[in-house]
């Protein structure tokens, strides 16, 4: 880790101002990705802008359409929230399955979405549920937010302040965890929403994507059998030392079926 300056802004505007004025600065929330990166000297920001002290961003609130979750809500908070368990139980289960207990007690939903790791869990939920990402400047529909490998629609001085999730009629999530990293080898989130069936997949390649094949099949029949044997083309999947593309493509169907079963349970 190299030396860096450390700022603790008291308000979102202060944090945004620091990000704009301090060159090479980076915001930090839970730090679950950034800290290991710094420790391995793979990044060396001049300053860290710690968002942890920003007031009011840890809340989980009910809205008529669903839930509004503050950017600094930790995975463990979401996992054990009665509100989440009532309105979007699949989201609570997903949060409770992220990483390990240490990660769940440090990592935040805003941090996970802003990082957009191609194997992270939250992006799948956000995309499948048709969430809107709230920033200091605007609201970004999830469909427009995730732009591929660690890329998002966030501008350089833009901070996520919260996420609003429309409650689905039903939803489910299933993944195969990489036993080493605990990231999803493949994870599939299915949701029956007011706007129809939405299916998002993480871990498959360069970032979370919707899966039209699954969506169409489930629109016809919302049952595990509808997707269990629906084979996606391996060409669209990543191949690495943990999983070959054909295996990931296979897992996509398996996890889709399990996610539907989870939604129906």
């Amino acid at each position: 880790m190299r030396d860096f300056a450390y700022h603790q802004p008291a308000t979102v505007p202060d944090a945004v101002a620091l990000l704009g004025s301090v060159s090479e600065s980076r915001p930090i929330a839970g730090g679950m990705t950034l800290l290991p990166t710094l420790k391995n000297r793979l990044a060396s920001p001049s300053a860290l802008i710690d968002l942890a002290g920003l007031p009011g961003l840890q809340s989980i609130e009910e809205r008529s359409f669903g839930l509004a979750i503050g950017a600094l809500a930790r995975h463990a908070d979401v996992a054990r929230s009665r509100l989440v368990a009532t309105r979007i139980p699949a989201l609570a289960r997903l949060a409770g399955s992220i990483g390990d207990p240490a990660v769940r007690h440090r990592g935040t939903i805003g941090g996970s979405l802003a990082n957009n790791d191609p194997a992270a869990d939250y992006p799948a939920a956000a995309l499948a549920l048709g969430a809107r990402i709230v920033t200091n400047r605007r609201e970004i529909p999830a469909d427009d937010f995730f732009l591929g490998l660690f890329e998002t629609a966030l501008g350089p001085d833009e901070l996520i302040t919260g996420v609003v999730f429309p409650a689905p009629k039903r939803a489910g999530y299933a993944k195969l965890r990489n036993p080493a990293s605990r990231y999803a080898v493949v994870g599939v989130f299915v949701a029956e929403t007011a706007n129809g069936i939405r299916v998002a997949m993480t871990g498959a390649g360069n970032g979370v994507v919707r899966v039209p094949e699954f969506e169409q099949a489930l629109a016809t029949s919302f049952a595990p059998e509808a997707v269990a044997h629906l084979r996606l083309a391996p060409d669209d999947f990543a191949s690495d030392m943990h999983a070959e593309a054909a295996y990931r493509a296979h897992l996509a169907s398996v996890m889709a079926a399990r996610a539907v079963a989870d939604a129906l349970a």
Partner: peptide
Amino acid sequence: LLSGSFMDYCMPRADM
């Protein structure tokens, strides 16, 4: 070495 960290080199865990 491709498996050069605990993210890629899988140590056995309690849940295994």
